[in-house]
Design a protein around this nucleic acid. Structure first.
Lengths: 149, 149
DNA sequence: TGCAATAATGAGAACCGTTCTCATTCTTAA
DNA sequence: TTAAGAATGAGAACGGTTCTCATTATTGCA
């Protein structure tokens, strides 16, 4: 799923399913997210492609999120961040630097992830919830911010 | 730590540490959170005590958060939610209904929690992060929202 | 107790990330 | 080629939260 052609095809079909086109602007957003190894804020996205209009970027990020192609990550930082959906990036978690808002991805070992997931499913069943997904975030301070304090 | 007197003493000292007073308005906020079994939005808090002014409530929730007495939970729902800090409630996680934004607390079994934590510490070390805490959220749909759809 | 000095309060204004509006441009399908 | 519908982008509007500032309450000190 790290082949650009496959990703494009998947996103095209995801968009089609919700009655949306895979337009040039949406391709540019996907291309930026594909090139990044971490979730990006709207400003980081606009900096990487100054031709993008802010309002269109927001609208298209919302469309892509509704199509299930990207995920919006909301933290207490001022801006939301966006990354490709787990269907593309594979299931993973986030480590968040609270001083600067920077987010990195990480994965748990398979056995921990599996033990966790079956435990979570059990809990959701008990509470009568239908589970869509889970998210696990580490909150701390990155090396850079530690040095600057 | 579910004894109201102990909680009050802890919070008084937490506030004192950051140079803040345990005023009447702050006591009222804590009292509301103590009476709730789940995180509350600002509107739920104001509904439970209509004497509270919105601007003061926001300010005092921020003060209490800075003192480490309460935690603010930010999700993609429109309002943030607040609950007593883990020092008071004990470590726990959240199950979030994405249609309605409602949040319930839950706890993992000790052995899963411990395995998870040591795994997370290892990851943070590898990435050069100093870890403050972690959060684990289940995202899904509660019984009520399921029935109404 | 009385009296500054300082902190907290609350009504409303301001802020700012995000969403909406609408006139224009682009795509699509026949 | 053209008409209908979708996407675009500049700027206005929205709304949750934070800030301002005049007023009120509290504290420390004589």
């Amino acid at each position: 799923m790290n082949n650009k052609v496959d990703v494009d095809q998947l996103i095209a079909s995801q968009l089609q399913t919700v009655g949306q086109r895979y337009t040039n602007n949406r391709r540019r957003l996907i291309s930026i997210l594909l090139r990044s190894s971490k979730p990006l804020s709207i400003n980081q996205i606009l900096d990487m492609d100054p031709e993008l209009a802010q309002s269109s970027a927001y609208r298209n990020l919302t469309v892509l999120e509704e199509a299930g192609s990207i995920a919006r990550i909301v933290t207490s930082a001022d801006h939301a961040r966006y990354e490709l959906a787990e269907e593309i990036l594979e299931h993973h978690h986030h480590i968040i630097c609270s001083p600067c808002g920077e987010i990195l991805d990480f994965r748990l070992s398979d056995n921990i992830e599996e033990a966790l997931e079956s435990s979570l499913q059990e809990i959701a069943d008990q509470l009568g919830f239908t589970l869509d997904t889970h998210r696990l975030d580490l909150i701390g301070t990155c090396t850079l911010c530690k040095d600057n304090s």
